[in-house]
Every structure is written in structure tokens, then in C-alpha cells.
């Protein structure tokens, strides 16, 4: 099974292209900052320079190096996406597994909770929380995003768990007195590991998009540079009207590229794991 998945994985163009783009951007975000001595917010000199040899992505109205911001922004964006997506995935798993495996009133309550959080408009909740609580680190932003993004994951994991619960191997474990936690960890979760991975990838992409919206309405982290914050500043300081396209085109393209690559890789992975989707 594992080798078979690998066989298809290395032959799946969607997966390879998606993963390739992500790895390149991730590489820039992780390693890039080490090659840039000055902090991304430092005024390096010439203002409003178009992209060129010295400043690859040009400079903004304050004379900040946009390439430096982009590289640091990539890092923050990946961090918020992975963290937010990860938190959402964990909550979704806990809720989904519990509801699906335990059933009964636990399921009823968790299901109700899931549905309530599901219909609450995420961004509206986030701006209330963010504005009042006002903690503005990237990690905090990720936490808030994670706290609001989990419901659909919980719902689909619950459904999957529900169908696995009736299987022989789960019954067998239950009869031999294995506890619920162990059954979930040892029997159920491994059986849907590919599905969990796919869920996480989608949450990852979704978190990046939400973070960019938060950044844009002025609720981004105050201790970091992110791609969304670059967009926000570009808008705030009228980059568009000043013709500084290099201020807002690259960060948006970066977000689109990351999220798009995640989605495409997700489709590819789905094909790898799911024989029915493989094309002959």
C-alpha cells in the first residue's frame, strides 16, 4: 500500500507541480531571511524604486526593501497557515473522532457546537476577538484562525469515523478491552491518515487566505511582516494611485501561488490515495 502510493505519487504531475512550488516558496521563506542582513522594515534609502538589480522587488514610498519584506512575509504567511491549519485540524480531529466514535449525547452536543461555529461568519468573529483582545502576534492570529476554522473538518472526520466504527477490526479491539482513546489512535486514525492529511492541507490554504483578509483590515500581527500586511500597507499608502505596482502585485501573487499550489497538490494527493480517481 505504501509503496503503491509512492509509485503513483512520483508520477502524479499535479502533486509534483504543487509540492514543487510550495517547496521553492517555503525554501525562500525559511532560508531567504538569513541572506538579508537588514530587518525588512528598515529604510534602506531610495524611495519608490521599481524592481531592479539592487532591490529585486523595488522599494516603497518609505524606501523599504520590498524583496526583504516579501521574503520575511513568506515566512510569516507559511507560519500562520501551518499553525492555523494545524490547530484547526487538531480541534477538528478531536471533535470529529469523539463525536463519531462515542456517538450518543456526546455526539449530539459536539454536533450542535460544530454547527453553531460553522454558521458563524468567521471573519466577523475574528475581528471582534482581535479588536478587543488586541494581542497581535502571528501566533495569536494563527490561534484565532484555528479556533474558528475547524468545523467542516470535524464534520467530515466525524462521518468517516462513524463508518469506521462498525468495522471488524474496531469491534475486535473494543471486545478485547482496549480503551476508546487507544482505539481511535491505533485503529481509526491510521485508517484515515491520508484523509487527515488532505484535510490539513485544505485548512492550511484556507488559513492563509483568512490571515490575509485579517491583515488587510488592519488586524494583522504587529510584530511581523506578512504578505497580507504588505498588501494592507500598499493600500493604505495608495500604492495603486502612485503606480507602485511592485508593492502589491508580488505579495498577492505569492499568496495565490502558495494557496493554489496547496490545492493542486491536494487534488494530486487525492488521486494518489484514491484508486478510483486515477486516470488510466
Amino acid at each position: 500500500m505504501k509503496t503503491e502510493a509512492l509509485y503513483f505519487a512520483v508520477r502524479n504531475t499535479k502533486l509534483l507541480v504543487g509540492a514543487g512550488i510550495i517547496l521553492v516558496l517555503l525554501g525562500i521563506g525559511v532560508i531567504g531571511p538569513f541572506f538579508i542582513e537588514k530587518p525588512p522594515t528598515e529604510y534602506v534609502g531610495m524611495q519608490m524604486q521599481p524592481p531592479g538589480a539592487e532591490y529585486w522587488l523595488g522599494t516603497n514610498t518609505f524606501g523599504q526593501d520590498l524583496w526583504a519584506q516579501f521574503v520575511h512575509g513568506l515566512r510569516t504567511t507559511f507560519l500562520v497557515g501551518a499553525l492555523g491549519g494545524g490547530i484547526a485540524a487538531v480541534i477538528g480531529m478531536v471533535v470529529g473522532f469523539l463525536a463519531g466514535y462515542k456517538g450518543g449525547w456526546i455526539d449530539e452536543i459536539l454536533n450542535m457546537l460544530t454547527n453553531i461555529v460553522l454558521v458563524l461568519p468567521t471573519l466577523a468573529v475574528l475581528f471582534i476577538l482581535n479588536a478587543y483582545i488586541g494581542v497581535r502576534s502571528a501566533g495569536m492570529q494563527a490561534l484565532f484562525i484555528g479556533l474558528t476554522q475547524w468545523p467542516w473538518a470535524a464534520r467530515s472526520i466525524r462521518a468517516q469515523t462513524f463508518s469506521l466504527r462498525g468495522r471488524d477490526f474496531v469491534d475486535l479491539a473494543r471486545l478485547s478491552g482496549v480503551g476508546s482513546g487507544r482505539i481511535i489512535a491505533r485503529e481509526i486514525a491510521p485508517n484515515m491518515s491520508s484523509y487527515l492529511l488532505l484535510t490539513f492541507i485544505l485548512l492550511f490554504g484556507g488559513s492563509i487566505l483568512i490571515a490575509s483578509s485579517l491583515d488587510f483590515i488592519g488586524l494583522g500581527p504587529t510584530d511581523a511582516v506578512s504578505l497580507g500586511l504588505m498588501l494592507q500597507q500598499a493600500h493604505q499608502w495608495s500604492a495603486m494611485h502612485l503606480g507602485l505596482w511592485w508593492w502589491f502585485v508580488p505579495p498577492g501573487a505569492g499568496i495565490t501561488l502558495i494557496v493554489g499550489a496547496l490545492y493542486v497538490a491536494n487534488v494530486g494527493l487525492d488521486e494518489v490515495f484514491n484508486p478510483k480517481l486515477r486516470e488510466l
Partner: peptide
Amino acid sequence: SYVLTATPYLWLAALMAWGFGVVWGIFPV
């Protein structure tokens, strides 16, 4: 479609405002 769903709303909005509004001057922004 995948490119479109991966695009942040605000960025496409900014691109369109810039292109159709500022550069070509067709629409108010």
C-alpha cells in the same frame, strides 16, 4: 478555477482596480 479560488479577494480587487481604474482609466476606483 483553482487559480481563482486561491486568489485572495482583496488582491484580485486591487489588480482590477489598478488595471481598469488607474492604468486604463475606464472605471472609477
